[in-house]
Structures are given as C-alpha cells and as structure tokens.
C-alpha cells in the first residue's frame, strides 16, 4: 500500500500518522504540501490532525480551499481511499466529502483523554480487522469534536449504516447523554463516519497514537493493518 499524508500550515499529527503507516507498510509515506497541485499515484490519502490555519474561522474551513483539495476531490470521485483524523475529519466535512459538522465540545473545553470506541460495521477497508460490536481504546485530543448533523442527514447515516465508530462504554453501551462515555456530546455518540461508497472515513480520535505497546498499547493498530490488507494493488 502506498500512502500519502497531506500537510497544511498548522498540521501537527503528520509525524504520528507517518509512524503508524510505516509500522504497517514498512516504508515512509509520501508527504504532500497543501499547495501541491498533483496527487502522486497512491492507494490511500490521509488528512492528519492538527490546527490547520490555527483553526481560525472554523476548524478545517480554510484548509478545505487549499490547492491540493481539488485533487483530493477528484481522487475521491475515482473511488480512492481517504482517511481523515481529527482536523482531517473536520476538513472532510468542510469539503463536503463527508456530511455533518464538528462543533465545540459540549463541555466547552479541550479534551485529551482515552475514549472507548465501538465498531459499527466490519465490512470496510477501515474496520474489517474488528468484529462488529468490538470495543477498543483510543486517545482523543480535540476542542471541536462534537459531531452534529441535521435530522435528515443523521437518518441517512444511520439508515445506510454509514457510522463507522461510536463512543461507548467499555462494555459497548453507547449513550449520547452520558458525558463519561460520549465526552464531547456528539449526536448519536458518533465518533467516525463513512462515505456512501465506504472508501472515505473520518474520525475524531487518534488510533495512530496507540499502535505501540511502549506507548500504552496497540489498540489502534487494526485500522492500519486492515487498510494494508484491504487495499491490495
């Protein structure tokens, strides 16, 4: 699998993502600059976390208009795989590649802690290493992760099974109103969603920061090993 990571001014988790990808592919991913106007021939494009353009205006709003994004839109149309994590998820919603928006956390504070995610479907490149209903631990670190969408969009997401991950308790119970298990107040406890063709995944937590026992565990690793297995040339 050949992967590329897009760096915007203010991106700050590109190194974490590169480490995770290198761990599963054995090679360093291509690093792209937001002003690049050509996408190399890759199997996966990753929009990593950070504070692109300082999160000024709205998180991800300015990055969504970077030169590279028109290439990424075209890549998406051709059915390319895209992973957006944290600020990357925000950029995907601002670009319109994924529906909904990420608002300020319900408690109005930045949250840096472990959370538990429940896997909602396991027939996608991003989730097939888990079983449906599996729960896994992952760090989260964001101020604006409160997933919000209008009723129709939510119904569509739920109806078409496009929710990839939900915030849940260690035993797999998801409760939108429980601030312990759904810390940022996301609607329907949504932590990550998929595009209709399931080839684009956006999520707020950081599986890339939990891929090494030395750093506290490998709970996030299945996402990356799964991508390598699923995306075979």
């Amino acid at each position: 699998m050949k992967a590329a990571i897009v760096v915007f001014p203010g991106t700050n988790r590109e190194r974490d993502m590169a480490i995770a990808l290198r761990r599963v592919t054995g090679k360093a991913p291509v690093m792209l600059w937001h002003r690049d106007t050509e996408l190399p021939d890759v199997d996966l494009v990753v929009l990593p976390g950070g504070f692109s353009y300082g999160d000024y205006l709205r998180c991800g709003a300015m990055a969504a208009h970077s030169p590279i994004m028109s290439e990424i839109r075209a890549y998406a149309q051709k059915g390319g795989h895209i992973l957006g994590v944290c600020n990357g998820f925000q950029i995907l919603t601002e670009t319109g590649l994924l529906p909904g928006a990420l608002l300020r956390n319900a408690g109005l504070r930045f949250l840096s802690q472990d959370c538990t995610l429940r896997v909602e479907r396991n027939d996608t490149a991003f989730t097939h290493k888990w079983k449906k209903g599996d729960v896994f631990r992952t760090p989260m670190a964001h101020g604006d992760g409160n997933y919000t969408a209008d009723t129709r969009t939510l119904e569509q997401l739920e109806g078409e099974g496009l929710v990839a991950f939900r915030y849940a308790s260690a035993t797999g119970q998801a409760d939108e109103t429980d601030t312990l298990t759904n810390p940022n107040g996301s609607m329907n406890s949504i932590a990550g969603i998929l595009s209709q063709n399931t080839r684009i995944c956006g999520m707020m937590p950081h599986p890339e920061d939990l891929v090494d026992p030395l750093m506290g565990g490998e709970d996030g690793l299945p996402l990356f090993t799964g991508l390598v297995e699923a995306i075979v040339r």
Binding site: G49, L111, S112, G216
Partner: peptide, 25 residues
C-alpha cells in the same frame, strides 16, 4: 491534564500521573 494534549508526536511513553517522571521516547 485532560485539557493538555499529552500524546501528540506519538512518543509519549508515560502520560501525566502514570509515573513519577514523564517519559518521552
């Protein structure tokens, strides 16, 4: 501590409170 990003960089071996000193690889 939960308002400070302690894991960015992917090298944090012990987060705040988990050991007497923080450990970064």
């Amino acid at each position: 501590w939960n308002q400070y990003d302690s894991t960015v960089g992917g090298q944090t071996v012990r987060r705040p409170g988990a050991a007497d000193a923080a450990i970064v690889k």
